[in-house]
Amino acid sequence: MTPPQARRRAVQTNFLAFLAALFLLAGCSTPPPGNSFAEQTWDHQPDIRLLVGEIRVDKQYIDQAPYPHAELQAPRTPSQALENWARRRLVAAGSGGRAVLTITDGRIVQSDLPEDKGTLSFFSSQRAHKFDGRLAARLSIENASGVRVGQVEAVATRYVSIGSGVTLNEREELLFQLVEEMVASLDQEMEKQVRLHLGPYTVP
């Protein structure tokens, strides 16, 4: 073998060794950390103070996993987020009776969107799935004898389309935002209904 051929062979061998090292490092690398999601806070909002001795949450809606339900894919399900809202926003400011927040809906339903068959679709992030969320709750006031003396309801809906090219972390972030927006919308509607129809059972 002539010296130039030997040099070429050495360069090829070193290059292959370099590629092997890259593959090895890629296989041993630590995957990117997952998202960390803080609980939604309501410190900027005044408490909804009710003239009752206790507040209870009745989770009537049960989170579901089978397709097309997707609420369990979110970092925090709509019903879990609404339970957190009740703990932070509703305050028992009376001496008797109780308020019951009944969560009647907390679904996120996934549907497939039509595939974009354009020539660049392989290289771009297309809208692959649509997630429709619906959150509904009923707030009831019961006197000390357990008789219902007042009731209001609120509903919030939102949707998001998620492309097929997004990462798992990006998908979680989008579903997290979907849930937060639904709870924020329901908060506004529930407070409005309480002020309109449960005035005698609130503390200004």
Score class of each variant (00 low, 15 high):
residue 83 E to L: 13
residue 81 A to C: 04
residue 150 G to P: 09
residue 83 E to T: 12
residue 164 S to I: 14
residue 155 V to M: 08
residue 99 A to C: 04
residue 153 E to A: 15
residue 89 R to D: 00
residue 91 V to F: 15
residue 177 Q to L: 06
residue 81 A to I: 02
residue 104 T to N: 07
residue 95 S to K: 08
residue 111 S to L: 04
residue 103 I to L: 15
residue 104 T to E: 08
residue 150 G to Y: 04
residue 77 T to S: 14
residue 161 S to W: 05
residue 119 T to L: 12
residue 176 F to L: 12
residue 107 R to E: 10
residue 121 S to G: 12
residue 177 Q to Y: 05
residue 81 A to N: 06
residue 169 N to C: 02
residue 133 G to L: 10
residue 89 R to M: 10
residue 110 Q to N: 12
residue 81 A to K: 02
residue 106 G to F: 00
residue 79 S to V: 12
residue 148 R to G: 15
residue 115 E to R: 07
residue 101 L to R: 00
residue 80 Q to G: 08
residue 175 L to A: 08
residue 105 D to M: 02
residue 150 G to N: 06
residue 146 G to A: 06
residue 85 W to G: 09
residue 82 L to W: 12
residue 142 E to C: 00
residue 179 V to K: 01
residue 91 V to M: 13
residue 167 T to P: 02
residue 95 S to D: 10
residue 127 R to L: 14
residue 74 A to G: 09
residue 78 P to E: 00
residue 103 I to K: 05
residue 79 S to N: 04
residue 88 R to M: 11
residue 87 R to T: 12
residue 175 L to P: 04
residue 174 L to R: 13
residue 149 V to G: 08
residue 123 F to D: 02
residue 108 I to T: 06
residue 170 E to A: 12
residue 167 T to Q: 11
residue 176 F to G: 10
residue 117 K to T: 15
residue 146 G to Q: 02
residue 109 V to N: 01
residue 119 T to W: 13
residue 159 Y to L: 00
residue 169 N to P: 08
residue 76 R to L: 14
residue 168 L to N: 11
residue 121 S to R: 07
residue 163 G to D: 02
residue 158 R to T: 05
residue 107 R to H: 09
residue 132 D to P: 09
residue 137 A to E: 04
residue 70 A to Q: 03
residue 181 E to A: 13
residue 184 A to Y: 04
residue 186 L to V: 05
residue 115 E to I: 15
residue 187 D to V: 11
residue 81 A to T: 03
residue 175 L to E: 10
residue 185 S to N: 07
residue 128 A to I: 07
residue 146 G to D: 02
residue 91 V to E: 07
residue 105 D to E: 15
residue 110 Q to S: 14
residue 177 Q to D: 15
residue 110 Q to P: 06
residue 102 T to D: 05
residue 100 V to N: 03
residue 128 A to Q: 09
residue 91 V to H: 10
residue 176 F to I: 01
residue 186 L to Y: 03
residue 141 I to F: 12
residue 130 K to T: 11
residue 172 E to P: 00
residue 75 P to W: 14
residue 102 T to W: 11
residue 80 Q to F: 09
residue 89 R to W: 01
residue 87 R to V: 05
residue 137 A to Q: 01
residue 90 L to F: 11
residue 112 D to S: 13
residue 152 V to T: 11
residue 164 S to K: 07
residue 177 Q to N: 14
residue 145 S to Q: 11
residue 131 F to A: 03
residue 113 L to K: 01
residue 125 S to M: 01
residue 182 M to C: 06
residue 163 G to F: 09
residue 155 V to N: 05
residue 137 A to L: 10
residue 76 R to Y: 14
residue 170 E to D: 11
residue 100 V to I: 13
residue 180 E to M: 06
residue 89 R to P: 03
residue 129 H to M: 13
residue 173 E to A: 10
residue 153 E to M: 13
residue 90 L to T: 11
residue 118 G to C: 00
residue 88 R to A: 13
residue 115 E to W: 05
residue 89 R to V: 04
residue 92 A to Y: 05
residue 112 D to P: 14
residue 142 E to M: 05
residue 81 A to W: 06
residue 116 D to K: 09
residue 183 V to H: 03
residue 150 G to F: 01
residue 151 Q to D: 03
residue 140 S to G: 10
residue 165 G to A: 15
residue 180 E to W: 03
residue 82 L to E: 07
residue 122 F to A: 14
residue 181 E to I: 03
residue 170 E to S: 08
residue 86 A to C: 13
residue 108 I to W: 06
residue 131 F to K: 07
residue 93 A to D: 06
residue 91 V to I: 10
residue 136 A to M: 09
residue 160 V to S: 10
